[in-house]
Computed example of a mutant assay.
Amino acid sequence: MLTPFDVWKMSSAFQTARMILSASELGIFEALSSGAKDTKKLARLCRSSVRGMEYILDALAAIGILEKNRGMYRVPKALNAALSPDSEDSILPILRHSSSMWFKWHCLTKVVRTGKPADCLKEMDRDTKDKRVAFIGAMHAIAVGRGIAHYIARDCKVASRRKRLLDIGGASGTYAVAFLNIYPKLKATIFDLPDVIPMAKARIEKTRFAKRIGFCRGDFDSDALPKGHDLALLSAIIHQNGRKENRALYKKIYSALDDGGTLIIRDHVMSDDRTKPPLGAIFAVNMLVATDGGGTYTFKEIREDLASTGFSRIKMIRKGDNMDSLVSAEKRLQT
């Protein structure tokens, strides 16, 4: 049972979060990636006041994000890879994405009152290339750093009986690579926006799967999906849509899939009372501030929407707490 002190602690957790995000925005972690530095040098590199830099550096050292020794600050060895801009395990893209979300959450009170993203977001919500790169980088870091892509692919055992995967909104190809790594006979197509595909190609070219992955430019909201696939993946997509938009998307996927093909959905899948998993309930609020109609859905809602567009044999094949639940559905064989 929560105590009043617990509630107070929760309500002041924003202070720690804001310090970490500001350190990322200021470039403190990048500046320290080449070694320890003192306050004055960091203030100069980060174009900040010495007083302000000293306070935030000491606070970051106090909570263990940095280490301080004889006036010199460094990133702890255990966090070096995570806070280095050049590391494959870097979480800096996640921090950049979180910084952009901070401003949206700042408007939460107004958003709750109106039920729509607040006017204060319109100017900052422009989908710039930098924001998109940060978002895609964040999703890649989460999927790889926490091993999610690997165990999602592993648990989709139907892929062992499939020939070609369509990764819808596949971004940089993190999940396509994970699937191909486990299923050697599988090939894949990454379908995403025209300015995202070059990012995917650049990342895929560095892997051993370049010859097994194709690319298709398009917008799944307005364009038809490419045909010739017996497996489709919809990873962390449905939460950005309302149910009406999801039904339209499921209809497109049903039309594009080969007869007998399978759709896999990865997302939060909520309990009937919408309070579990807790991260899913919080993420629904994230969609409230960030989208016009997005949210997180129960299995019953997902099943109803899939069935309305023709899918059958709809089942939950994995139940998780971290946007790692899986739902599968099949397109009927035509007789």
Score class of each variant (00 low, 15 high):
residue 98 S to K: 12
residue 227 K to L: 11
residue 102 W to T: 09
residue 197 I to Q: 07
residue 284 A to V: 02
residue 225 L to Q: 01
residue 217 R to N: 13
residue 334 Q to R: 09
residue 239 H to L: 08
residue 163 K to G: 12
residue 232 A to H: 12
residue 189 T to Q: 08
residue 11 S to D: 06
residue 233 L to T: 12
residue 335 T to C: 06
residue 177 V to C: 06
residue 43 A to W: 06
residue 158 V to K: 00
residue 13 A to E: 09
residue 251 K to C: 08
residue 147 G to A: 04
residue 67 E to A: 00
residue 220 F to I: 05
residue 150 H to P: 01
residue 17 A to F: 14
residue 130 D to M: 10
residue 24 S to N: 15
residue 211 K to G: 07
residue 193 L to M: 10
residue 186 L to D: 06
residue 98 S to Q: 14
residue 329 A to V: 04
residue 233 L to R: 05
residue 306 L to S: 07
residue 172 S to G: 10
residue 115 G to K: 08
residue 133 V to Q: 03
residue 91 I to F: 15
residue 317 I to H: 04
residue 50 V to W: 04
residue 156 C to I: 13
residue 162 R to A: 03
residue 5 F to S: 11
residue 109 T to P: 07
residue 310 G to C: 03
residue 53 M to L: 12
residue 228 G to H: 11
residue 203 R to Q: 08
residue 261 G to P: 08
residue 275 T to E: 00
residue 49 S to W: 13
residue 313 R to C: 10
residue 168 I to D: 09
residue 157 K to E: 13
residue 187 K to Q: 03
residue 90 S to V: 01
residue 41 K to S: 15
residue 224 A to N: 15
residue 136 I to R: 02
residue 167 D to A: 07
residue 302 I to A: 02
residue 128 T to G: 10
residue 4 P to A: 07
residue 125 D to H: 06
residue 252 K to H: 03
residue 148 I to P: 02
residue 157 K to H: 06
residue 184 P to I: 02
residue 123 E to Q: 14
residue 157 K to R: 14
residue 57 L to G: 12
residue 76 P to N: 05
residue 328 S to V: 14
residue 317 I to M: 11
residue 158 V to Y: 14
residue 192 D to A: 11
residue 65 I to V: 14
residue 171 A to L: 12
residue 116 K to S: 13
residue 82 A to C: 05
residue 126 R to L: 11
residue 113 R to S: 14
residue 288 L to P: 04
residue 254 Y to T: 09
residue 70 R to D: 14
residue 21 L to I: 15
residue 231 L to V: 00
residue 14 F to S: 05
residue 59 A to E: 09
residue 119 D to I: 06
residue 104 K to P: 09
residue 17 A to W: 11
residue 255 S to Q: 13
residue 95 L to E: 06
residue 211 K to I: 03
residue 200 A to F: 03
residue 236 A to I: 14
residue 273 D to Y: 03
residue 172 S to H: 09
residue 299 F to W: 02
residue 97 H to A: 13
residue 300 K to N: 01
residue 315 K to C: 09
residue 239 H to G: 13
residue 13 A to S: 06
residue 266 R to E: 13
residue 136 I to Y: 14
residue 302 I to S: 03
residue 108 L to F: 07
residue 54 E to S: 10
residue 144 V to I: 15
residue 42 L to G: 10
residue 307 A to C: 08
